[in-house]
Nucleic acid binder design. Structure first.
Lengths: 223, 223
DNA sequence: TCGGCGATGACAGGTTCGTGACAGGTTTGG
DNA sequence: CCAAACCTGTCACGAACCTGTCATCGCCGA
């Protein structure tokens, strides 16, 4: 899951990045309105976390520009004000959700996850494919009921594959969803994690199929 | 378990904090309505103890705001009035329980504990995992029938783990549930208590598994 | 058969955890 | 009221583990 955080405060941005990163989301951070516009033009994000107050502009402007451009990317607004008016403003401008500062990081994480799921058609937090059960919230994986130990990155990768089962995902897409911008990582890394995941899922009925030049695909027999 | 106490009287608040603290609950205190709103926006609580009479507003207002915002956090109201009307008011506004002042602190503790359990899916006050029995009310732990001496913090930690057995709990989550706002404690402390708990539970069949970068998980063989 | 993409073992670096020792604070018991 | 015992949280250091790069080899498709 790829997240853009638009927030001028260094500390707040770092805290959000850390929390979401721990939840397996790849976060890019823009410190201002202009930077945010650039990122949004260059990349596709699953969710945008947008501070309403920015040094070089208003978050609502970014939001309405984004919507005018036809983007439906879910946006969660951060507002410092408690007034009803500002939250009505935010929702009117096209935000999907809002949080009032100061907020609980876990709540932010939960809401971001909810928004991120909106994009996928997969609704539930617990998904089964073949004899494999994937619990997104608990970040646990079971094969025929038996727990499998995965690392953070492996869980993230499996989450991607499970969310788009039977569909082919390009390696570049996986890279983008797994790593943030400032993690300069080679494409080979994706192959590596696919290999590691395959090894750990060897006992399962699902398998990760390679499509040369296209990407990877998670499949289950009869599925 | 994380508790918010909204009470203007210094003495009463201190007494409640002490009593609940002794029972292993991490308590924050808000002296007024405004402060309460801020806390509620910033943190997630397992239970809110809410005085109906506040210097800068009515507790029922806070409550109905909270419910309108979609929160299901259990709320226990404190009321000085004996009339039926006020208790109906409280429950109508969305309170889960109420107590009439003056009240017995032990009764308050018991009711708060009951409300706290509502949030976890774990219904009973006595839970067993493997050969381990955990009694939340008495705060006692037994391994195959033999009592184990745990400190307050150790019991709280174990309670968290037991309530979410088999699920992975992030270290940050544990920290938030174990300590209140004004206890500024490092993440390392969680690791420490996990270590201490492991030592004391060495004789048990359950074990606390570390998932690097993800959190801890309580497991029992065959289950 | 050839070119190139993907798979995989080995490894170094960095991060996260585990744990003993210690100091401050609190409770307990006399 | 004092002292002893105990609970608490910090620090520091070492160990374990995760991560990503490299290099090599296999395998697919043309």
């Amino acid at each position: 899951m790829r997240i853009l955080i638009v927030e001028d405060s260094e500390d707040v941005a770092a805290a959000i990045t850390a929390a979401l990163g721990r939840a397996g989301m790849a976060c890019d951070r823009a410190a201002g309105a202009r930077e945010a516009q650039d990122y949004l033009a260059a990349e596709t994000y699953d969710v945008v976390v947008l501070d309403i107050h920015l040094p070089d502009g208003d978050g609502r402007t970014i939001l309405s520009d984004l919507r005018r451009a036809g983007s439906r990317t879910p946006v969660l607004m951060l507002t410092a004000e408690l007034e009803v008016s500002s939250r009505v403003n935010a929702l009117d401008a096209g935000a999907d959700d809002y949080l009032v500062k100061p907020f609980d990081l876990r709540e932010l994480e939960a809401r971001v996850r909810v928004l991120g799921r909106r994009g996928d058609s997969a609704g539930s937090a617990r998904i089964s494919v073949g004899d494999l059960e994937f619990d997104q919230a608990a970040r646990t994986v079971r094969i025929a009921g038996a727990a499998v130990a995965l690392t953070r990155r492996e869980v993230s990768l499996l989450g991607l594959l499970v969310a788009r089962r039977d569909r082919i995902i390009a390696k570049e897409q996986i890279l983008e969803r797994l790593f943030s911008m400032d993690e300069d990582v080679g494409l080979n890394t994706v192959e590596l994690y696919v290999a590691r995941l395959r090894k750990k899922l060897a006992a399962s009925s699902v398998s990760i199929v390679t499509h040369r030049g296209l990407g990877y695909q998670l499949t289950a027999p009869d599925g």
